[in-house]
Amino acid sequence: MDPIRILRSRTVVMATTNIDTDQIIPARFLTTTTKEGLGAQLFADWRYDASGAPKPDFILNTPAAQGCQVLVAGRNIGCGSSREHAPWALVDFGFRAVISTEIADIFRNNSLKNGLLPVIVDGATHEWLLANPGAEVTLDLETRELGLPDGRKVTFPVEAFARFCLLNGTDEMGYLLGQGEAIAAYEALHGKQPAGATA
């Protein structure tokens, strides 16, 4: 995972609310057994026509969207299926951050583990971003600030440990493996019985 410190990018706006992970990557592409190459199928059913040709008016097919790292989405992006293929596809396409007023739990979690920064903003900031597609923004993970073109700065929340991992490009697995002693102690305490059946 590449570390994230500062992202500077124009935005792509998809104002649709409740963009579910079935849209981000439809189920028929989930028979893959790797993480790579899913960017080609990102938003496949919105992006391509029945013959597989790109729909010219779909935002991700427009020249303006190319090279953009920040996706501004309508309220509640990432709802539905837990498929991590959704952030894999977004990252493979080139996105490094998703901004909305609400981001679904599992998708937010999965994004953080793949170097895709989920950014929750207030309604007014969101409105502004939706109304100004292509705006040049900065996301500073160190200061947890979103910078708008007029110089305004908006703070966004990031869970402390996830932020540490993103800043350093490390994953949580190393930390969990480092908990081996505590895990072994827990296992020794409870034996083969689940804790809830013996308490």
Binding site: N109, K113, M173, L176, Q179, I183, E187
Partner: peptide, 18 residues
């Protein structure tokens, strides 16, 4: 609760989640 594939790996390896 549901988890992503990275977390599936965490549970495989450590039987724990953060």
């Amino acid at each position: 609760f549901g988890i992503g594939s990275t977390e599936v790996g965490h549970v495989f390896a450590t039987q724990c989640l953060l």
